[in-house]
Structures are given as structure tokens and as C-alpha cells.
Design a protein around this nucleic acid. Structure first.
Lengths: 347, 347
DNA sequence: GAGGGTTGCTAATACGCATTAGCGCTAATA
DNA sequence: TATTAGCGCTAATGCGTATTAGCAACCCTC
């Protein structure tokens, strides 16, 4: 027994007057094939189990059988800090829901001490193996770790598209940022816009790459008039740059940026979308956080998480390799994409 | 070997020409006391480990050591849905942070499907015991379940003060609502208020009891002029009742109520705190959610969670009983508690 | 060159569970 | 009555590691 007097099957066996093996057999359902236990004995054992509240030690279980019906959740960033809460919560919710449905428990792999800010999957005692498999969350993945994961045989599924490692595909469930972004660009084009600004990186995380890809693909020959690659900068600088570029519509990869720029614009008596249209590429924050209903698209976070959990189950139980799945993002009409301003039209 | 041919210490031992025990000894640092391994052998073993990329199986490791290093987190209400997110997130964050620091993983026991509304700790297969111990969250606890928990020897710690069960104390880390509430009453008294309204229950959860206790204790002989025990009602009804009572200051146990009443008051051209002072007993929502900075106190949720986790660790590792800990709540000056209105003063 | 100490390693065991071979028993069959 | 067949259960084993007792060899010391 671990420090305290945790019950073991031996204890249950003694109390029920049977052997440890019998307890195990009773616990693991009716294997009609092997040693059959008559209902009377079975009931006697179960009574003791009920009275004592005994539960098999998951560690020992996994040790013996190799599986313990526990799914791990690894997050590169802490899962619950306020700043990230809005980001991770829907994923956790989706995972929790599906895990429950599938009869798995959830283990949050927090144990790994963060080295230099980022968490490591492979710490000296890789705790990953505590769970039968693992869902991995995070805006940006460590390529080296991903490489080791893909090379190994531990079942995992990433949430968010991931580039292949060499010729090896990474199992993931992602959101189709490219298509969703392209769709919003189409709508802007349809409203007559030709001067586009883009506020967000072209490179880096896959989600950044995809948004930019969708953006530039949909623009075709049109070149954006302005591009700010740094996000999270001061609102004034962003707004000035956008105005200076002559853009009539600004695409923000970060909703937070869109929020502050929109607020600043209004405070300067600029109308949105009268004088400037704003498009946010993916809704992160809750609608009520900002009074404005941005033109954007909804990232189906919960559904991504559910599908990822499902795929993980598949990998675990059938020892399959997993696939690559992109879910569509629903466009949101919003109030911030309008016709191009009159003075621009007059030109 | 877990599913396939993972390396074991035996493999390493064979490759290095030593015994499994030696490999284990090398891995677990230099215990000068026990069998000392000369540098030459040590190096030989470590070379093989480096070359093969061997990592000790954490399962077997925990198995041998007898500790799972898993902490359970049980929430009476679902943790992730948006409605509760603001309430639980700080707790979860605090727990996660401390768990990481202590080297524990987190098992989320959020999954148990609610039977008849409330979650049960002791469902038929109580998964609680999967973890070495458990932190319990929730506004209101089931007394029966608490009784069983206290009677048993399973290590747990509640977040939030809990009344003793009979003569048995419940281990908890709570917030000192009574003192914080009393402090705010003192401040109102200091500003000349004598007509108090209280919007919130006097009974029920410990947190309700404590707030009311602090409120009435600080008032001394003064009797509140108005008391609404139901929370979450329509704003108009609450505001009307408060005005009708002649109260100059209203204490709300629910910030949400304070928010809607304050908004309604302003829309009726009532000044807050010019015509009516408002005090919220505990900040739940994020500051930016409402434009108004309420006079209130901050419930140190994260710190409560951290301390609870710490106490739980203590209980688990030293087999101790746990204690009762109340943390102070920092008062927030805010803008909604002012001098009493002129017409009242004139009377 | 025998007694005692140290060094360097290993055999054995425990951890809690799942699983399998097989034992003792009764009832049916030859 | 001897033989078989099935039932109800248990002893034994393995999973991969940590840990401890202890063995063999070597070095001193007198």
C-alpha cells in the first residue's frame, strides 16, 4: 500500500473470503471463457467492493495490462491561466465531453516542470506514458519533440494542423483557416475592396501560415497595400500604418489587435466600417467581451477537441496511425465589413 | 514492454554487461550509502543509455515507489462550460500551478455525469481513488458525502470553508468572507451610512452564512432597512425594493446582481454612488466585464487553490489530517461607495 | 596468512494487478 | 466402480522498476 492504507485486491479478497485472482476476475467483467464465477460469489465480492469503495490502482493496472483507460492532455502552455483561459477552455470542454462518452478518464499532464518557460513533453521521466494516449494542445509545437513523438509508437493526436515531419504525417484535427480566410477575402472583394492590409505574421505556427496562405491565394494578383507582421503592438502604431497605407479593409490575425484598433478608430471619429472595414481571422474572445460584432469566422474548437479525442481512441484501441482532419470554420457576417469609403470610391 | 518492444533496464543491463539492479542504481544518482558504482562502470552504463535513448518507464517507477503522484480535482458543478468558467478558472489555475511545482499530475474528475442535477463523489465506480488525494471544489457541498469523506481516510482538501461534521473538522482552505464583509460595512459606516440593504441569502452555503455574519456583526445594533434573500431576480424588482426601503447603501452577495442593478439605476438617472452606494461582496467577474469599478473585495481564488493543493500534498505525503485555513480578502476601494445622499443627510 | 574491512556488484524481492495453468471436487457417464 | 467432464476457484507468474541483503574478491594490518 502506498503510504496510507490504500486498499488492494488482496484486502478485498480477504474480506470476501476469496483469492486475489477471484477479485480481479470479478472486476474485469464476465469472461465467460475463462474461470466462471457463480453469481453468489460474484455478488459477495462486489458487496465488499461497494462497501469499501475500492478502485483498482490505475498504475498497477497499466503495468499489468498495458492500458488503463486514461487519456492524457498535454498543453504547451498552462491550461488555466486567465490569459489563456478563453483559448484552452473550449478544447478542454470538448475533450472532457468526448472522453466521458467513451469511458475514459482525463489526466492533465501538468507534472512536467517548465524548462525555460515552455513545457517539455519528454522530461527525464516522460510521464506521457501514464496515459494510454495523449491529446496535445498548444499554439506552437516543438518540432524536435514532435519528431520524437512521430517516430515513436505512442498514440497521440494534435489539435491544430501540423506540417509533416519529413515524409511522416502528424495525426491531427485542425481548423481550415486557409479556406475560411479566403472566404472572407472573397466577401471583401465582392464589396469592392481592393486595398487590403494584413496584420499578422506570414510565417511561424501553422495557423499563421494557413491564414496568410488563404489570404494571398484569394487575393490573386492583387497585392496588399500594407502588412504589419508584428502582433500585439500599440494600437496607435497599427492604426496609423493602416491609414497611411490607404487600405480600405484590414485583416487581423489577432482578435485582440482588431479590438484595440477598432476602439481607437472610433475614438478618433473614424467609422467602422464606414471609413475602414475590419476583419478578424478567427474568433477567440467571447462576443460580449467587446461590444462590436466583428466580421470573422468561428473556429470550431469544441468540435476539434471532440474529433481529436475520437481519433485518439481509434489509435489506441485499433493501433492505427491516425489521419489528418481539417474542420470548416463558419463565417460570421458581423458589422465591421462594409462597402468601401466614398472618397476612395470617388478616386 | 508496453505495446511493443520498448527498452527495459534489463536490455540496458545486457548491453552494458551488468545487472538490472546496477542500471537502476546508476540511473538513480549516487547513493553514497548503498552500493557504490565506480565511475568506469557508471560511464559504461550511461553510454548505452545515451546511445539507445532509454527512458525509465514512469509507470513501473511509480509502481515500485508506491506513489502515483496524481492529484484528483472534483468539481460539483461542471468546470468548463462558460457560465462557470469564470468561477472555476482561477481555482483550476492555482491547482495546476502548484501541482506542476510539486511534480504531480492532475486527474480531472469532472466527467461524472450529473445524476439528478448534482454530481456525486461516490458514484458506483468512484474514480476518486484513482488519485492519491483530491481537491474538492464547488459552491455547495453535499453534507452526506462530506460525512463519508471525513469518516474515511482518503486524503482530500476542500476549497472554501466547511462546517465541521459533528465534532470532526473538515480540512479546507477558505476565504475570510466575514472579516472582509465586516470591513466594507465599517467603511460604509465611516461614510455616514445607517440605512443598509442586503441582497443575498442569510443561510445555505458557508460562504453565504459568513457574509451575512460579517455584515450583521459589523452593523451591531443597526438593523438593515431592507433584505432581499433571493438572488438573480429581475433588476427592476431589486432596485425598487432597495429604493422603497430608503437604504442609502446596498450590499450584494452576487456581483451579477450588483451589475444589473447599477446599470438600471444609471439608466434611471440615479447616480451611483451619488444617490445610492453599492457594495459587492466578492469579485467574481473580470474587471473589464462591467465598466464600473465596484467597491468590493477580492477573493484570493488562485491562492486558495494553491494552498489547498499544498495542504493536500501534506496530507498525502505525511499522512496528516489537514487543517482549517482562512485567507484574507483584499478590500477594493472602487467607485460605488460614497457619502450618503444630500436629501438623506438633510432629513 | 588469517582476520577484518572495503569495494563492486548481483540475486532476490516487493509493488498491485491481470492472466493462465491447473487443482480438487462433484456429477454424469461407461 | 472406474472414468470422464465440467465447475469453482487458486497458485503462480509477469509487467519494469527500486531497494536491500549479501556474496565474492580484493586490500590491509599485524
Amino acid at each position: 500500500m502506498p503510504p496510507n492504507g490504500r486498499l488492494t485486491q488482496r484486502d478485498i479478497a480477504r474480506l470476501a473470503g476469496v483469492s486475489q485472482a477471484t477479485v480481479s476476475l470479478v472486476l474485469n467483467g464476465a469472461k465467460a471463457t475463462a474461470g466462471r464465477i457463480p453469481d453468489e460469489t460474484r455478488e459477495r465480492v462486489q458487496k465488499v467492493i461497494r462497501e469499501t469503495g475500492y478502485v483498482a490502482d490505475p498504475i498497477a493496472r497499466r503495468m499489468a495490462k498495458g492500458l488503463n483507460r486514461i487519456l492524457g492532455v498535454f498543453t504547451y502552455e498552462p491550461a488555466f491561466p486567465n490569459a489563456q483561459a478563453d483559448f484552452f477552455a473550449p478544447f478542454l470542454f470538448g475533450i472532457e465531453e468526448m472522453a466521458q462518452q467513451l469511458g475514459y478518464d482525463l489526466l492533465l499532464l501538468t507534472g512536467a516542470p517548465a524548462t525555460r518557460g515552455k513545457r517539455k513533453i519528454f522530461d527525464e521521466n516522460n510521464r506521457l506514458r501514464l496515459a494510454d494516449g495523449c491529446v496535445i494542445l498548444g499554439r506552437e509545437f516543438d518540432r524536435e519533440e514532435l519528431k520524437r513523438l512521430v517516430a515513436g509508437d505512442y498514440p497521440f493526436v494534435a489539435v491544430g494542423r501540423r506540417e509533416p515531419i519529413g515524409r511522416a504525417q502528424v495525426p491531427y484535427v485542425g481548423a481550415d483557416y486557409a479556406a475560411a480566410t479566403a472566404e472572407l477575402v472573397q466577401r471583401a472583394l465582392a464589396k469592392g475592396h481592393t486595398k487590403f492590409a494584413y496584420i499578422g505574421p506570414k510565417k511561424g505556427a501553422e495557423s499563421s501560415i494557413d491564414r496568410w496562405a488563404g489570404f494571398s491565394r484569394a487575393l490573386g494578383d492583387i497585392k496588399p497595400v500594407g502588412h504589419i507582421t508584428e502582433v500585439g503592438g500599440p494600437a496607435a502604431a497599427m492604426l496609423d500604418a493602416i491609414r497611411a497605407s490607404g487600405a480600405t479593409v484590414a485583416f487581423f490575425t489577432e482578435v485582440a489587435d482588431a479590438v484595440v484598433v477598432e476602439a481607437l478608430a472610433r475614438s478618433q471619429n473614424l467609422s467602422v466600417p464606414g471609413d475602414l472595414s475590419i476583419v478578424a481571422l478567427g474568433a477567440h474572445l467571447r462576443p460580449q467581451q467587446s461590444g462590436t460584432r466583428f466580421t470573422t469566422f468561428v473556429v470550431p474548437r469544441e468540435e476539434m477537441a471532440r474529433q481529436a479525442t475520437l481519433m485518439l481512441r481509434e489509435r489506441i484501441e485499433t493501433n492505427s496511425a491516425g489521419t489528418q482532419l481539417l474542420l470548416a470554420c463558419e463565417p460570421v457576417e458581423g458589422d465591421t465589413l462594409g462597402a468601401i469609403p466614398k472618397e476612395t470610391r470617388r478616386k
